[in-house]
């Protein structure tokens, strides 16, 4: 049995040599850190010392109200963010496709600008827009005699933060969905038109099924992106008020780089990864039907 494997290795040796640099890179910079992170998650590992902790870090996390709150907040963001990203970017890419090619590029570039802009600048801009005392949004509300709104209050902070993140994150999905949209043969739509299909019916019956693989990709990457939200929350609310916007990654950062407890931080990373894998697996399971790559 083993001989057969060696024979295969020998036979395909040049092929393996070609992929060796990439494999080495993957092993060094991805595989090793993952395995090391998993290992450290079973240690009490601080600035001062380290020692075997068994499942102690996991136990303490599952009994920690703040961590459980951060899991809830993260899931809430994902639940709001992913469907909104899919629906808005899908609709916008359909609208963009109605314009001439040159104008399409302009729109796509405009939507993509936030993705290449400094997150710090964007956060400051939003802080100004949402400022309770002198912000533009409250000023506009004032013009209609509407009372000022504290957009970052305990009850609203998570929704506001998700909306802000949404405005920044739409560029990528729009570009990807537009590209997929351009790949659908025009003849399908022409045939549907002959059958008397309306504008939305064409897109629901043709565009949506044809773009399922791309939508799945956007769904999975958006989910992972939502789970990894960090910088904007740190700058925007620092996880407050009273942990209302504390996410797993923010807590992970605090645990590692403020508290210096790398064991607990790595345990959080492992839990976060498990959650992401489960959700991504569910997305594959429910969206994979009819997928054609």
């Amino acid at each position: 049995m083993l001989k057969r494997e060696f024979n295969l290795l020998y036979k395909e040796r040049y092929g393996f040599l070609f992929v060796a640099p990439a494999l080495l890179f993957f092993a060094l910079f991805y595989l090793y850190p993952i395995l090391d992170a998993i290992k450290v998650s079973f240690y009490k590992y601080t600035y001062y010392s380290s020692g075997w902790a068994g499942i102690g870090n996991y136990q303490s996390l599952l009994q920690d109200d703040v961590f459980l709150r951060s899991v809830k907040n993260t899931l809430l963001i994902v639940i709001m963010f992913v469907p909104a990203t899919l629906i808005i970017s899908f609709i916008l890419s359909i609208f963009i496709s109605l314009f001439r090619t040159r104008l399409q590029s302009v729109f796509k570039a405009v939507f993509y600008i936030p993705a290449v802009t400094s997150i710090v600048s964007i956060t400051f801009m939003w802080q100004y827009l949402l400022n309770y005392d002198f912000g533009l949004l409250n000023f506009l509300l004032g013009l209609f005699d509407i009372d000022k709104v504290n957009f970052l209050s305990y009850d609203r902070a998570i929704v506001t933060t998700t909306v802000v993140v949404l405005t920044i994150s739409l560029g990528g999905p729009i570009v990807i969905l537009s590209a997929a949209l351009g790949g659908i043969p025009v003849s399908y739509y022409e045939a549907a038109e002959l059958d008397g299909a309306s504008f939305w019916r064409k897109h629901i019956r043709i565009t949506l099924p044809m773009m399922k693989p791309t939508i799945l990709f956007v769904a999975v990457t958006s989910t992972i992106g939502a789970f990894q939200l960090f910088a904007i929350i740190l700058l925007f609310t620092a996880g407050g008020p009273n942990y209302a916007t504390t996410t797993i990654l923010l807590l992970l950062y605090q645990e590692a780089f403020v508290n210096g407890d790398y064991g607990r931080a790595n345990a959080m990373a492992v839990i976060l990864s498990i959650i992401i894998v489960i959700i991504a697996w569910l997305q594959f399971k429910f969206l994979r039907t009819d997928i054609e790559y």
């Binding site: 910079f29 991805y30 595989l31 090793y32 850190p33 993952i34 090391d36 992170a37 998993i38 450290v40 240690y43 590992y45 001062y48 010392s49 380290s50 999975v220 990457t221 992972i224 789970f227 990894q228 990654l249 992970l252 590692a256 790398y262 931080a265 790595n266 990373a269 492992v270 976060l272 990864s273 992401i276 894998v277 991504a280 697996w281 594959f284």
Partner: peptide, 21 residues
């Protein structure tokens, strides 16, 4: 998907002084 996930874990690896005080 796993490749995307690993970027999270990758950032949390320990330094070379693991296991020592």
């Amino acid at each position: 998907v796993m490749l995307l996930v690993v970027t999270i874990l990758g950032g949390c690896g320990s330094g070379n002084n693991e296991g020592t005080t």
